[in-house]
């Protein structure tokens, strides 16, 4: 990189991080939550704010900002106030290792995948804090459910990623992209080797576990409104509720970025030399397109399926996904040695 003063570089990085976390969240909410969900339910969704309701999200933000920041009487005020920020921080930490182009990255960690998997569980702490500090039984149960669910699904998530790591032979996100760009399938290198083809089982497991990590329906037991009001967010209002809401969709966007790096070739598109400088400009756009594709799947599942029961959720993780992902690792390992 060009030598810049430390503070300039830091400012650029902070601005880039904010943009990478918050910019995808808005389109995701509008495109999928407001519009696609409405169309799938044969209705129109928001239509009044802006052309075709496109300013609805701004209207919602304005509404939430006006609301009173309520604290329950018995709440642990400091923990209660801090919890939404802890959740949001985990999304910011996640985006740190995502590469957007050959030189467009925040940090190029050699253990990028490991780091991403580790910090993705930070949000559990925030959710447990919210659940415990609210001094409400619904929040408490919601927090505990969230913790149980996130820990259970962390395992298949990590194990599914293992297959990719074995095949690419590296934990570095940047090198995983390059491995896909330069890979070949049975000697044919025209489209590289996006790992979704060779690691399809891994991709399926990753998508299911990701859905659960994001607590999107059908895995939304922590906020199951018919049982727990809204789980750990029950007592939140105004700005802090908004932070949870933004956190949910920002994390969806970032998990989709990680999925596209691991399985869809990240910022690379077939036909252009991956070392080309063009990708520093084109890369973020390519990533955004891939993110839209992955989140389309996430929201399609969200809209289609009803919520699981708590025990079905745990069964799916421990009895189906974990054995399958272990199997995937074994097969990948054998094939890696054999070829």
């Amino acid at each position: 990189m060009i030598g810049l003063a430390f503070w300039i570089e830091t400012t650029f990085r902070s601005a880039g991080g904010l943009a990478a976390v918050l910019l995808p969240a808005g389109p995701l909410v509008y495109l999928y939550l407001f519009k696609m969900m409405s169309f799938m339910q044969s209705r129109l969704g928001p239509m009044e704010a802006g052309p075709a309701g496109s300013m609805q999200l701004l209207a919602e933000v304005g509404k939430f900002l006006q609301k009173e920041d309520l604290f329950p009487a018995k709440a642990d005020r400091i923990v209660f106030a801090a919890a939404p920020f802890v959740v949001l921080v985990s999304s910011f930490l996640l985006v740190v290792v995502v590469p957007f182009g050959p030189d467009a990255w925040f940090v190029n960690l050699d253990t990028g995948v490991f780091f991403a998997m580790a910090v993705s569980s930070v949000s559990v702490i925030g959710i447990l804090m919210a659940g415990w500090a609210s001094a409400s039984k619904y929040s408490m149960l919601g927090g505990l459910r969230a913790a149980g669910q996130l820990i259970a699904y962390e395992l298949p998530l990590v194990l599914a990623v293992m297959g990719v790591v074995i095949q690419a032979g590296t934990l570095n996100m940047q090198d995983i992209v390059l491995a896909q760009a330069e890979g070949e399938i049975f000697g044919f290198g025209g489209i590289g080797n996006p790992f979704i083809i060779t690691q399809f089982l891994g991709f399926v497991i990753f998508m299911i576990a990701m859905q659960a990590e994001l607590t999107q329906p059908p895995f939304d037991m922590p906020v199951a409104e018919s049982e727990l009001v809204t789980g750990y967010i029950t007592e939140y209002s105004g700005m802090r509720f908004l932070l949870f809401f933004i956190g949910e969709f920002a994390t969806a966007g970032i998990f989709a970025m990680i999925a596209s790096v691991l399985f869809l070739g990240g910022w690379w598109v077939p036909g252009i030399d991956p070392d080309s400088n063009l990708f520093n400009i084109l890369g973020p756009a390519v990533m955004f397109a891939k993110v839209l594709g992955v989140t389309f799947l996430v929201f399609w599942f969200r809209i289609t399926y009803p919520r699981f029961r708590e025990d079905q959720l745990q069964k799916l993780a421990w009895k189906v996904l974990i054995p399958l992902s272990l199997l995937n690792i074994v097969i990948t390992g054998i094939l890696k040695v054999a070829f």
Partner: peptide
């Protein structure tokens, strides 16, 4: 059954659009 469910929502979205 789950794939069929995805088909139902996709078809509804298509019919609406």
């Amino acid at each position: 059954g789950m794939i069929k469910g995805l088909g139902v929502t996709a078809k509804t979205a298509y019919d609406t659009m």
